[in-house]
Design a protein around this nucleic acid. Structure first.
Length: 259
DNA sequence: ATGCCGTGGAAACCACGA
């Protein structure tokens, strides 16, 4: 079973790229972030024609997340992260697919830091961590997957010294990420490739992709049930070089079909 | 050090991203 995540940066503007990648990569489950489309503008027909069923949580202009599954309907569990009824940003969606709980997330960027956006990021992180503890306590296979907007370590940025004051790499952010991991989650990509330079995002400008000046910010966190089933993982780099492409590349893992 | 590019929505610029 292949599970993927892709920050599309506009699901409608990116539709040809998304459909081509779905056809070539044939993932079983896909978490999308940054739909940048209201609920009624999600391109369901095209995605169904590609062989996927979907649930999504849209928002006008910004954010927006979706979960796609090939040939099966994702069973929606929740479409908001608990803990703040005032939070109206579409950044979390959770479903069960083939017995696996999938939490698709788009964690706030948080820049500029410090400031209200960074405060929101840290509050959102605390809510995620509280919910993640509940998921682990339920003792089931879970993956928290998506754009975390976290550079976990120095080896996850092309020039880490440039990011020390950035919301993606500030000490508060790294501390929040490590606190989450310490509950018992496994960073799947880093487990399989402990030393390699692996990026999932490259800026649009300054030829960042051509220079491989990237960041690793899209992550798969596995509960121990899924950690045992982890087989392989990768980044579909070449998609970042396509015309009219996102600034993120798709990232994927494969797991055994059962325990 | 920097939004230099790109998207969406409104308006012919702006907010936002990482």
């Amino acid at each position: 079973m292949k599970i993927a995540t892709y920050n599309v940066n506009g699901v409608n503007g990116r539709l040809p790229v998304l459909l081509r990648w779905l056809a070539e990569a044939a993932p079983d489950v896909v978490c999308l972030q940054e739909l940048k489309a209201p609920q009624e503008k999600f391109p369901l027909q095209a995605i169904e024609a590609a062989g996927y069923q979907a649930i999504w949580h849209g928002q006008k202009s910004w954010n927006g997340v979706a979960i796609l599954a090939r040939d099966v309907q994702p069973e929606e569990i929740r479409r908001v992260l608990p803990g703040d009824p005032e939070d109206e940003q579409s950044r979390y969606l959770e479903a069960t697919i083939n017995g696996i709980r999938v939490g698709c997330l788009y964690l706030p960027n948080g820049n500029p830091a410090p400031g209200p956006k960074f405060d929101y990021k840290l509050r959102w992180f605390e809510r995620l961590t509280a919910h993640a503890a509940d998921l682990l306590a339920a003792d089931m296979p879970v993956v928290l997957v998506g754009d975390f907007n976290v550079i976990p370590t120095e080896k996850d940025a092309y020039k880490p010294e440039r990011w020390v004051n950035d919301a993606l790499f500030r000490p508060e952010t790294l501390e929040a990420f490590h606190k989450l991991l310490s509950q018992g989650w496994t960073d799947a990509i880093r487990k399989l490739f402990p030393e390699e330079t692996i990026y999932t995002f490259w800026d649009y400008f300054r030829n960042a992709y051509g220079r491989n000046a990237g960041l690793r910010i899209d992550h798969f966190l596995l509960s121990n049930h899924l950690d045992r089933r982890l087989l392989t993982a990768g980044v579909d780099h070449s998609v970042r070089g396509w015309e009219k492409t996102s600034d993120h590349a798709p990232v994927w893992i494969t797991i055994t079909d059962s325990d």
